[in-house]
Design a protein around this nucleic acid. Structure first.
Lengths: 113, 113
DNA sequence: TTGACCTGCAACCAGCCGATTGCAGGAGGA
DNA sequence: TCCTCCTGCAATCGGCTGGTTGCAGGTCAA
């Protein structure tokens, strides 16, 4: 596997930005270079390069040099893996809180008797 | 349904903070008040109140007044719903990019013939 | 070799954000 | 009623972050 998986909060922080989502949507349909992205987005190439660095550090984008340009592509599997973790946590909250509610219910019932 | 669902980036931004995750983990095991949280976490009560406001605006926490205190609890279903959306997007990226790769493969094959 | 094109690094700036302190207000118990 | 406890609002502060401009380096084609 890839040496060290990025921390969840790092991935979430990377995803908490509209410009980065715009980049990801483009890279999710076709691999592109930073200059190509700069043409289609209303920010400078250097700003995009910074965003790409953040996304790559978060494991959401893969980059490969190709001649004199660098092709970037979105890694859908990373996003799905993060989604799996979030879903598991969400379900855990639900089950725990439901259990606490049930215990309170039972205690109230026993006190009524 | 709840009137207006928070934007995904809003939810993601809310989740992109370690202190808020610490709060969520506590609220995911048992509903608590802001003062209770302040005892268990190394930040001031007001900081926690701000975080709770962010989490509530993101639809990740539910609050209910109970006497002179306010009980907050994590909403696991919101997290799972967000996870579902992320997973769908991740799978979409994978299928699109795979399709692009296959088309390039076929074009190369036809050019070889 | 020279020029065009793309990337990468550095410095700089403005705005947002997490955190703190201080104070006002409201609900419950003695 | 009075005191206590908890919440809510405002002002303030330092640091992070998204964005820009400028410049240096490297690679391909003519």
């Amino acid at each position: 596997m890839s040496g060290s998986a990025p921390a969840p909060t790092q991935q979430l922080a990377a995803l908490a930005d509209d410009t980065r989502w715009a980049i990801l949507e483009l890279l999710g349909s076709r691999a592109r270079s930073a200059s190509e992205l700069a043409v289609e987005l209303p920010v400078s190439r250097q700003a995009i390069a910074k965003h790409l660095a953040v996304l790559e550090a978060a494991g959401l984008v893969e980059s490969a040099r190709e001649g004199r340009s660098v092709r970037h592509r979105a890694i859908g599997a990373s996003l799905s893996a993060l989604a799996d973790r979030l879903d598991a946590i969400g379900r855990q909250w639900e089950s725990r809180l439901e259990r606490v509610a049930r215990m309170a219910e039972e205690r109230a019932a026993s006190e009524r008797s």
